[in-house]
């Protein structure tokens, strides 16, 4: 008996989409390199200013500087933003403006391969950014334990979850104006996922809501890794993000099929 519907996640051919994106971005390598500076600026700004104003925070069983508290949350945020922006803007462009995928569909590749290939690409990009972010974090002393290295897979998982959902979301966008609506969803998630201050500052009823936010899940996971506080809750965060990514990917494949092969 089959409980789950038959799921197709694309084939090995999806790697060709990754290859395509790498070739396109090779002409823009400077952009990837310069991406290193963004986390550096953010972390420096925190270190110079807010660190002194905010002082130490208690996180779990230890006191940490504000930068140590915020840095993993910002890593999660940058993984989210990178994945969502690329999935939305670039995929929207390829899907509805340049009709890049129409050409791809004349080859042995299938719609599922396209969706999966775009996710591969999000993971590659995500890992490049996460690596440079983590390097800055460690150099500036904002990492709280050797477990911080687990933040790399954690950030890649975050990219997966958000890129899949972003791919699915982009199929509903009609024009560039709809991107305002995206910002409308993204900004509250960004500001209210307990990335800038501990969740305990929220009134009790709001804390439950904050916990639902995918960015909270990711930030909490990465903070746990960075501060060496790994426990059962880490597993919950991981499952949340994996499920979110898989659902996003299935919906994205389905929507791509409807749009590209009517």
């Amino acid at each position: 008996m089959r409980i789950f519907p038959e799921l197709h996640f694309g084939s090995r051919r999806s790697l060709r989409i990754l290859e395509r994106n790498v070739v396109i971005y090779r002409t823009q390598w400077l952009m990837l390199v310069s991406g290193f500076f963004e986390p550096l600026f953010y972390l420096l700004s925190l270190g110079i200013g807010l660190n002194h104003l905010v002082g130490s925070l208690s996180a779990g069983d230890r006191l940490v500087t504000y930068a140590m508290f915020v840095a993993p949350g910002m890593l999660a945020t940058s993984a989210m933003n990178g994945a969502v922006i690329d999935a939305l803007f670039n995929t929207f462009f390829k899907l509805k403006v340049a009709h890049t995928y129409d050409a791809v569909l004349a080859t042995p590749l299938d719609v599922n391969d396209i969706a999966l290939g775009e996710v591969w690409w999000a993971l590659v990009r995500g890992s490049i950014y996460a690596t440079s972010f983590l390097t800055c974090m460690i150099i500036l002393g904002d990492a709280g334990s050797p477990w911080v290295l687990l933040c790399l897979p954690g950030a890649i998982l975050t990219s997966f979850a958000f890129a899949s959902v972003g791919l699915a979301a982009c199929t509903w966008l009609r024009s560039w104006q709809d991107f305002d609506t995206v910002a409308l969803i993204q900004l509250p998630i960004f500001l209210f996922s307990a990335t800038f201050f501990p969740i305990t500052l929220y009134p009790g009823w709001l804390q439950g809501l904050v916990r639902c936010s995918p960015l909270y899940q990711s930030a909490a996971l990465l903070r746990g890794f960075s501060l060496g506080q790994i426990g059962p809750s880490s597993a919950v965060h991981i499952i949340y993000l994996v499920v979110m990514g898989l659902i996003g990917l299935v919906v994205a494949s389905h929507r791509f099929r409807r749009i590209l092969t009517p």
């Binding site: 129409d102 050409a103 004349a106």
Partner: peptide, 14 residues
């Protein structure tokens, strides 16, 4: 599709 060539109505070049 591996054995087909397709020239679509609109050019979809990179």
């Amino acid at each position: 599709r591996a054995r087909l060539g397709v020239v679509p109505q609109e050019d979809t070049l990179e």
